[in-house]
């Protein structure tokens, strides 16, 4: 497999997960959905690699 990092990569997983959940607090379902869409676009741009994104999309299919 290619360029997507699927090994353990978060030094403080509980902290990061907490950030994500907290970010959604007080938001309606619609606001959360829009927030998630923006977040995906921001992270996609950070990854910046078509193949890695394609691998991530395949991985997300479960």
């Amino acid at each position: 497999m290619g360029t997507l990092n699927t090994s353990r990569n978060l030094a403080a997983p509980d902290d990061v997960y907490d950030l994500l959940i907290h970010a959604h607090e007080g938001k309606t379902k619609a606001e959360s959905d829009a927030f998630n869409a923006r977040l995906i676009l921001i992270l996609m741009n950070h990854v910046g690699d078509r193949d890695a994104i394609a691998e991530a999309l395949a991985l997300a299919e479960v």
């Binding site: 829009a34 923006r38 676009l41 741009n45």
Partner: peptide
Amino acid sequence: ALFRDAVLTLAAKHDFARPL
């Protein structure tokens, strides 16, 4: 539509979203 609006919202503030 959700992603399209997300792009437009981000593009208003951030250059990186404008190519999308």
